[in-house]
Design a protein around this nucleic acid. Structure first.
Lengths: 212, 212
DNA sequence: AGCCAACCGTAACGTACGGTACGGTACGGT
DNA sequence: ACCGTACCGTACCGTACGTTACGGTTGGCT
């Protein structure tokens, strides 16, 4: 018999997705004090099923994070007609999207659990929550931004040696202290107008720093 | 009789400081799975004393964070002979100090507990760990950097409207994705040479963005 | 010496929660 | 009609840990 303990990536029934959505909602509401019983109650399923499907609490958390990650696959970038306007628009949209995600309750909650988990982690057994969030957060952002930066350089609109360095600077200009403040519980709103203003500013600054 | 439950800021005996140092060490080693028993054992004190001195687990955590915060008071900035070189040197030193603190094990551990705590917080009762770290982290950095920025503007070396905005940009250029990656458990070393290089780069970029 | 406060060490209590077991129900296949 | 599977709901178990209680020791004060 083959083990059912490991959650293969796409083997989620609708029922299980509902359960994960419930877990996600609970995570947002209650943070890491999410309990197996509470998930079962919220999702109207039995604890036995939770353990059967996800192995243990860690498995449930991991599946939840992956489930959310699978929902936010990035929007592609058009490759044709790439001029300065397209670059600016691309970067601005990118920055705005990123800020929207970052400041969302779900992202904050997920990053909180991941950070918490990364602390009490016995490094070595399997994939940890921190790694997953890292993979679907900053790293994913880098992968998605890279082609834009490369296109910009090819088009003679940007100048940089290492893509990675350029990305990290862009990251800094966009995110600044927003994420850490939110994670630490600073209650400040980031409205839509502020997001778009910040996205424009970050893009503008980035272009100044990396213009040929 | 006056209550002894509230830890007045400077009323720490040597013994209590030792205990807090032990708690700090444990926090760094074991993260949030720090337990009252483990602290008592590590510090060779009784749990009764812990509860007497700090009220409860939260009080101990809070006192520990504050204790660490009280140890990292910033270095002052000289106000005389303020020219471009002084500004550059000041910013670079600032950035390097900040990166050193951020990437230190203690900072990572403290930020982890604070983030964890900020998640499961019943907002309203007293000062929370997140608030304390926020106050002694980003906010303290802003307060310490502000005079430097203002001096720079007075000297005609910088141009900006709002000090806050300028600070946050500097923050972004310095920190970039370092802190979140560390908090999420990304094991990457930030050596002394890298720190100084990054500090120089951030300062340089900042000056480009905010030059008159 | 006698007393008292502070403290250590440890045992004990209460509870929350992860994990398991089990009876009951719905349903599709044979 | 019968059976197996998947599931719900709930009672239960074991343990970790916060918190309290208590007996014993030290050391300063009178």
């Amino acid at each position: 018999m083959k083990s059912e303990l490991e959650i293969s990536e796409t083997a989620l029934t609708e029922r299980q997705k509902d359960v994960l959505d419930a877990a996600l909602a609970l995570l947002v509401e209650a943070g890491d004090k999410l309990t197996m019983t509470s998930v079962a109650r919220r999702a109207s399923c039995s604890k036995e099923s939770l353990y059967k499907w996800f192995g243990d609490r860690d498995g449930l958390l991991t599946a939840t994070v992956q489930w959310q990650a699978s929902k936010v696959r990035g929007v592609p970038v058009s490759r044709d007609a790439f001029d300065r306007n397209a670059l600016v628009a691309g970067l601005e949209r990118f920055a705005a999207d990123w800020l929207r995600v970052l400041s969302g309750k779900i992202s904050v909650a997920l990053n909180r659990v991941a950070v918490t988990h990364a602390g009490t982690d016995k490094h070595g057994l399997g994939r940890d929550l921190g790694g997953i969030v890292l993979e679907n957060g900053p790293f994913a952002m880098a992968r998605r931004l890279e082609p834009v930066l490369l296109l910009g350089r090819e088009a003679g609109l940007l100048q940089f040696e290492q893509t990675d360095e350029a990305f990290r600077t862009f990251f800094g200009l966009v995110v600044r202290d927003v994420q850490i403040r939110l994670l630490l519980g600073d209650h400040f709103e980031l409205g839509e107008t502020a997001i778009e203003r910040d996205a424009k500013r970050a893009t503008e600054q980035f272009l100044v720093l990396y213009k040929p």
